[in-house]
Design a protein around this nucleic acid. Structure first.
Lengths: 202, 202
DNA sequence: TAGATTGTTAATCGATTAACAATC
DNA sequence: TAGATTGTTAATCGATTAACAATC
């Protein structure tokens, strides 16, 4: 279910900025293409955000979902692997996301160390663990090849990091206290390819 | 269910390159952390790839899943939006994925037009529709901001494109014949944030 | 008060797991 | 033939939808 929460959040943000003050599960279901029943069920799981006969207050619901998603808290991040993909993500995030901010990047390439990516300094890989501890880093963003990702995850497991946002094409094994969320671009493209094939054959 | 197929494919590829010739649902279930029952159920949906008393032939199963995923076919792609994220994806794909290949990129920035990204030429946005038709492009990779993504999707809907791999933070509306697969990085990060919060509170 | 719409329970549906007969 | 393991049916579980009483 939590998988749907960011989507609600996105639509409510849009509605809010369009100046829509209230919305019923009915209307929202039409816009989002899900059943009104599911919306009510989902939202009620996390507390009674609506009001009978009225619906939901857009702005209030938006804020509450934000809290559930932990978006009211500051998250300090590091980038591990300052290649093209890593650089793109730093640029992307530093523009848009208030609560999330990159404090440093790490790479084994000496040519990158000492430089900056969107004002985020790049350090030597060896300094990573210390940096995490000293700067209270919550999230490590892993944009390195598969083999490196496995090794680095070992190292990260010894640090007080809270979560890994993994872009490597591998399922990471971590202690329970560390959260992992993977973006498997290859898998996503394969799903697309599957759907193309299926469509072609009908 | 199709959602799990790329993951099977990944694990089978690994096993194959480790020289493992056969695997039982039992063993695979241990490695992948799913039930053996589910593996047999999943694989049987698409045809009898196994053999009683033996298990599955790693290499054969790998190839068959590849076919189901349409990975035996060539897919020609274009990049729309040649910014940092787009560039990262082109670099990433052109290295690894045999079946998928970028034929061109498009951008509104005159500074990019005429240049190349990993040997992929960047053209004016206006040339996009023609290019798709003339070069039999299957997949458009959308790495532009939200508003542009919606506009461009309108244009794409008039072309013979088969699928859109969408990186913009929006749900695209397309004719039924066009497949959409979205990579919502923001949503992914929010899920991570949610899990951090939940873990913090226990 | 009447109308609207939530919160919530019950019914349905689909997906996962368990079990075992078929068969290599 | 005996052992292993799939393919497949039946049982269980969870998620979605429908229905409606509560209440604003």
């Amino acid at each position: 279910m939590i998988g749907r929460l960011p989507r609600y959040y996105r639509y409510l943000g849009d509605l809010k900025s369009e100046g829509v003050e209230r919305i019923s599960s009915q209307e929202l279901s039409r816009i989002m293409n899900v059943t009104a029943s599911q919306i009510r069920q989902d939202l009620n799981n996390f507390g009674g955000f609506g009001q009978q006969g009225y619906g939901y207050n857009t702005s209030y619901l938006y804020d509450e979902i934000g809290k559930i998603l932990g978006l009211n808290k500051q998250h300090d991040m590091i980038l591990i692997g300052a290649g093209k993909l890593g650089q793109a993500i730093v640029n992307y995030m530093n523009l848009k996301n208030r609560g999330f901010s990159f404090k440093g990047a790490f790479d084994i390439d000496p040519a990158l160390v000492g430089k900056s990516i969107a004002n985020v300094p790049v350090f030597k890989m060896e300094q990573m663990s210390d940096f995490i501890t000293k700067n209270n880093i919550d999230i490590a963003v892993l944009t390195v090849p598969k083999a490196a990702a496995i090794e680095i995850t070992q190292v990260l497991s010894e640090t007080p990091i809270k979560a890994i946002w993994n872009f490597a094409h591998v399922d990471l094994k971590v202690p329970e206290r560390i959260q992992v969320e993977s973006v498997h671009l290859q898998d996503s493209l394969m799903k697309l390819s599957y759907n193309i094939r299926r469509n072609d054959e009908n």
